[in-house]
Nucleic acid binder design. Structure first.
Length: 153
DNA sequence: GCCAACGTTGGC
DNA sequence: GCCAACGTTGGC
């Protein structure tokens, strides 16, 4: 099993939004970055665990856990001209962008903030999230990192 | 709102 | 293939 961290802006779609969705499940659409696409298309498997990260907000940090419930499939918003994620270079015959479905698992009692994670830089030195200039919306997390961060709650 | 870091685009 | 210009991300 693999572990991931996925960023989302709580003003747009936060963990409470995921929890209140039908089946507590949502397609992770709108990702328009090739590295992130490749991870969703090739690497994220059913049952993989996900840290749900809130970005661009008062206290950025990990707020809970989700799970991959459907593996990579074409992101149909990419060929919908009405969608804000529309990409004229993508179409149904030759989809350029992919997504996975994620399901709510739990919300942490408190936010494990980016600042707090930085305080553990000794242990989490390889955490992609903490690397300078990291803007990837999906990051791999090792099992050790996963267990350690879960222990912080 | 600012700005550093990074990705993408397109002319050459 | 280079690189300047531009757009986006995301912390602060």
């Amino acid at each position: 099993m693999n572990y991931w961290l996925m960023k989302s802006e709580p003003d747009v779609f936060g963990i409470d939004d995921l929890k209140s969705r039908k089946d507590q499940t949502e397609p992770w659409d709108g990702v328009r970055n090739y590295q992130a696409r490749n991870m969703m298309r090739d690497d994220m498997k059913k049952g993989d665990q996900i840290f749900f990260y809130h970005s661009n907000c008062d206290v950025p940090g990990i707020v809970g856990i989700a799970e991959v419930v459907r593996e990579g499939y074409p992101d149909h918003t990419s060929w919908d001209p009405e969608s804000k994620y529309y990409d004229p270079k993508s179409n149904e015959e030759n989809p350029r962008w992919f997504m996975v479905d994620v399901k709510y698992k739990k919300k942490f009692k408190r936010t494990i903030s980016l600042n707090e994670l930085r305080e553990h830089a000794q242990v989490l030195s390889d955490l992609a999230l903490l690397r300078k200039g990291n803007r990837l919306s999906i990051n791999p997390v090792s099992k050790d990192q996963w267990d350690y961060i879960c222990g912080l709650e």
